[in-house]
Amino acid sequence: MLLFTPFIVCVLALALDHLFGEPRCMHPVVGFGRLVTAVEKRLNISPENPLRGLTTGILAVLLLTAPLLGLAVWVSLALDGLLLMLAQTVALWLAISLRGLAEHGRAVAEPLHEGDLERARDQVSRIVSRQASALDEQGVAAAATESMLENGADAVFASLFWFLVAGIPGVVMHRMVNTLDAMWGYRNPRFLYFGRAAARLDDLMGWLPARLTAHTYALLGDRKLAWWCWRNQAPQWDSPNAGPVMAAGAGALNVRLGGPSPYPRGIKQRPILGGTRDASPASIESAIRLVRHGVWLWLGISLVATILTFVVVTQ
């Protein structure tokens, strides 16, 4: 029965996410984000100094992650049976965000479909860092589609991966590191050095989950185009993990993503990803569906692997 526990926990956590979504108040990730902001303001006092910035950035990562990682390890060792399963289920539920992903995507797709560009811009500004006021309909749809694909890797598949590999400590550590990268991983004067440790650690923890996600997208969409985009377009992207995920996802959906995008600091020229179709409300919905079908695929593979392991062990 213990062999089936990880699979059961994944099903229960996804069921909680489907029923309740993310907690509306007192979400631990939100609380952690506030702590991250306070620590950064206290330690990042010389952002232009490379050595000091790198050193204080490493110190900040250790101060923020070590206590909570230690607590996660203690919980995993101190509990057993149903109590441990309950703790694992809650930890994974709090880390995963499949329902939230869909809600954010549809909040953009619905006003776009109704021709309400201003409301669509307002909604997309909540999930991307682009200057939403400068986006046209296709730009808004492309930004939301990219967000669905990339956050599917970060907020869904990586959480499942790290839980299956390392239980509560794995999923807690990944969520903390991913939050640190989201808040500090900018190549601007304030975070260029201070945020580098968090960014590199996030790259390391996301490397394998990102490629498994890219494989998942490719298997469930236009396989030939997805493989071609991954092989030829992903190396041009500036992120080692977002590149494969977004290239494979864009190819799987046969939608054109990337290209020049407006940011507060100006137009950023990004490589073109994917196929020939313009992004649209339909591509946002297709990206949501791709992530959801990918979760079902992962659950199926996990169940089959568990059954095969059970058969081998009991022989």
Rank of each mutant, 00 (worst) to 15 (best):
I127E: 12
V128N: 03
V128H: 04
R130F: 13
R130M: 13
Q131S: 15
Q131H: 14
Q131E: 15
S133A: 15
L135F: 10
L135T: 07
D136H: 11
E137M: 12
Q138D: 13
V140S: 05
V140Q: 08
A143P: 03
T145Q: 08
T145A: 04
S147Y: 09
S147V: 09
N151Q: 05
G152R: 02
V156W: 06
V156Q: 01
A158G: 03
A158H: 03
S159E: 11
L160E: 04
F161K: 00
F161P: 00
F163N: 02
V165A: 15
V165W: 11
A166Y: 10
A166K: 07
I168P: 07
I168G: 05
V171F: 03
V172K: 00
V172P: 01
M173S: 14
M173D: 00
M173E: 01
R175I: 08
M176S: 01
M176D: 05
M176Q: 13
V177I: 15
V177T: 13
V177M: 10
V177L: 11
L180T: 10
A182W: 06
M183S: 06
W184E: 08
R187V: 02
P189T: 10
F191H: 15
F191I: 07
L192D: 12
Y193V: 06
G195E: 03
G195D: 03
L201M: 14
L201D: 03
L201V: 11
D203W: 07
L204V: 15
L204I: 14
